[in-house]
């Protein structure tokens, strides 16, 4: 699986092990990318929303750094501004964040070297799991040698989140109120970006079918089972896609 995409980087072809910090630096360098810019623009849009809602700079940044998943951040902002209690707010955010568990699960076999990787390393790396870094990792990590994947992912995730953190602060301080049309355009950025990159990261037919099923079922479950809708979308849509494509691959065995 270590076929290098870019043969002009001969270090990927040799068998000599590359130290972890070099992989981390490579991950940081890869973070200078279109996905990171799009995510930054989405968080700039969020900074405007946070300021309008009356959140302080410290609160906005604490949420950006600690939660690090835009949909969950938006839910928590709504909870804070409406004076919701701790428990209902926690439940609302937890429901919006369930998707992070299967995403992290799917990433683990990629970045874990059995018998070598420690659990605390994986726990730290897992904080960077959010759609942008996850999609990037699922697409690019399989091309790297196994030892390099975890430090590369940490370098990538760490740089993207630090950069977005700083830009969110700058946007909060500089932009008093975004014009409606700019704010609206920034809000559309995230779903279109997710749509294209999720399709680009899918490797199997099962992934693509699951994506179409999720797109169709998401709004249905949102209307009929609000609250747990994303969980049901994932379980029902994902299972249908898996079973359907498995029958297609193997028949009834």
């Amino acid at each position: 699986m270590t076929v290098p995409e870019r043969p002009e980087r001969p270090e990927l072809l040799t068998d000599t092990p590359v130290p972890g910090r070099i992989w981390m630096l490579r991950g940081a360098r890869a973070a200078i990318s279109i996905p990171a810019l799009i995510l930054t623009a989405a968080f700039v849009g969020y900074a405007g929303l946070a300021r309008e809602t009356g959140l302080t700079l410290a609160e906005t940044l604490a949420m950006t750094g600690l939660v690090w998943a835009l949909p969950s951040v938006v839910v928590l902002t709504g909870a804070l501004s409406s004076g919701m209690g701790l428990l209902p707010a926690g439940i609302a955010v937890a429901l919006a964040s369930v998707r992070l568990m299967p995403m992290t699960m799917a990433l683990m076999p990629l970045i874990k070297v059995p018998g070598k990787t420690r659990n605390w390393q994986l726990l730290i790396a897992s904080h960077f799991v959010a759609v942008t870094a996850w999609v990037y990792a699922m697409k690019h990590l399989p091309d790297l040698p196994k030892e390099g994947r975890l430090p590369f992912f940490v370098g990538f995730g760490g740089s993207v989140s630090s950069f977005v953190f700083c830009m969110t602060a700058i946007a909060y301080l500089l932009v008093e109120r975004l014009p409606d049309i700019v704010a609206g355009a920034l809000f559309l950025l995230t779903p279109v970006y997710f749509l294209c990159s999720l399709w680009g990261a899918s490797r199997l037919n099962a992934d693509r079918v699951a994506m179409i099923a999720g797109l169709a079922l998401g709004p249905l479950f949102f209307i009929y089972f609000p609250g747990l809708d994303l969980l049901w979308t994932g379980l029902v849509g994902g299972t249908l896609a898996y079973v359907g494509t498995r029958l297609y691959r193997r028949g009834l065995t």
Binding site: G184, F187, A213, L230, G234
Partner: peptide, 27 residues
């Protein structure tokens, strides 16, 4: 793992269509 990935992908796809059909803010 294929099944787990299907579930994760369908979940993210659900987020996408919700963001487009039921957006927040001025959108």
């Amino acid at each position: 793992l294929i099944w787990v990935r299907c579930v994760a992908t369908a979940l993210v796809a659900g987020v996408i269509s919700k963001l487009i059909l039921f957006p927040q803010g001025v959108l």
